[in-house]
Amino acid sequence: MPELFMNGRGRDAVTLVGGAPLATPVLEDALTRAPRLLAADGGADACLARGLVPERVVGDMDSLSPEAARRFADRLVPVPEQDSTDFAKALRGLDAPFVLAVGFLAARVDHALAAFSHLAERGGAAPPAILLSEHDCIALLPPRIDLALQPGDRVSLWPLGPVRARSSGLRWPLEGIALDPAGRVGTSNRAEGAVRLECRGPCLLILDHARLPALLAGLGRGAAPG
């Protein structure tokens, strides 16, 4: 399957649509930054409902409606194995600067948790994937990131294993604090301005959706916000 995505368009970022409920403004925002459109299984129905045609529809096809299967028959990339999620299947072998994944956070909690686990499994593999909802943008925290944030901005860290982190620019510094999903987590911290985070261990960074430009810039995938 990976060679299907090596189509000479790797310079364009990708919007990947999942099957969870999706607010149209979130999809529109993603497409302005990541114009290539892919769907993971039932995400094709969200595309169909909005008159959009994905480049590919990837997954085990157990959530795809008959109408979407018919309309996008020439774009289906079936991956029948059940050892990975459709989110993971769609990212496999994908050639792009980054991926904005929408329609993965607003329905079943187990699906969202599986997406988080896959981010940890991928580690620093390219392309970096950011999960978007109306309220949040979520990415795996790299070993070091600088974020051009504003005072009062929410900065939440959610460890996916034992994590050691250092920070500057946070209201409650992380120096010397061990984070763990079964112990202390780092939700609802606040920026006092520009923030630097250094991290050892798998950890999610959760920012307000409006801070997506700052996150992309921090990941080296966009211009620093003014």
Rank of each mutant, 00 (worst) to 15 (best):
M61S: 11
D146W: 09
A224W: 10
A34C: 11
A114M: 04
P159E: 03
Q82I: 01
L215W: 14
F116K: 04
D180N: 14
A46W: 12
V99Q: 12
R144P: 11
L113S: 13
R196S: 14
H118N: 11
S168E: 15
A210W: 15
G18P: 06
G193S: 07
G152F: 12
P151F: 07
P54G: 01
E67L: 03
V155C: 06
E28H: 11
S167E: 12
G218R: 11
F98Y: 12
L205R: 12
A178V: 06
L141M: 15
L204T: 01
L219I: 09
P127T: 14
G43R: 02
V58W: 13
D146G: 15
V57F: 07
A73N: 02
M1K: 11
T32V: 06
A112Y: 06
E28L: 10
A217C: 14
V185P: 03
C199E: 14
W172S: 08
V57D: 04
P78H: 11
T15P: 00
L52R: 03
V155Y: 05
W158R: 14
G19M: 00
A46M: 11
P54E: 06
A217H: 14
E192C: 03
R184K: 15
I177K: 08
C137M: 10
D86I: 03
L204D: 00
G59I: 00
L207G: 09
E192S: 02
W172H: 09
L132P: 11
G10L: 08
P173W: 02
R36S: 09
E81Y: 04
L174M: 14
G10D: 14
D86N: 00
D146Q: 14
S84Y: 09
L64H: 04
D153F: 10
P66G: 08
G201W: 15
H111N: 14
R71T: 06
L37T: 05
C199V: 15
L132Q: 11
H111K: 12
E198Q: 14
D74S: 09
L219A: 10
S167D: 13
L37D: 07
E67K: 02
A49G: 13
A40E: 01
T187H: 07
A90Q: 05
R154M: 08
P159L: 05
V58C: 13
T15D: 03
V53N: 09
L216I: 10
T187D: 09
A178S: 07
G10E: 15
I145T: 10
A217I: 14
L207Y: 07
R190E: 15
H135G: 05
P213Q: 01
R33H: 13
V155G: 08
G43D: 03
A107C: 13
H118Q: 15
I130N: 00
R75G: 06
G93C: 07
K89A: 04
T24K: 04
A23N: 02
S168I: 01
L160G: 08
S63R: 10
E81M: 01
G193I: 04
P54H: 06
L91Y: 00
R50V: 13
G42F: 00
D60R: 00
N7T: 09
V185D: 03
A30G: 03
S168M: 05
R56C: 08
L141C: 15
S63Q: 11
Q150P: 01
L170K: 04
D153W: 12
R9V: 03
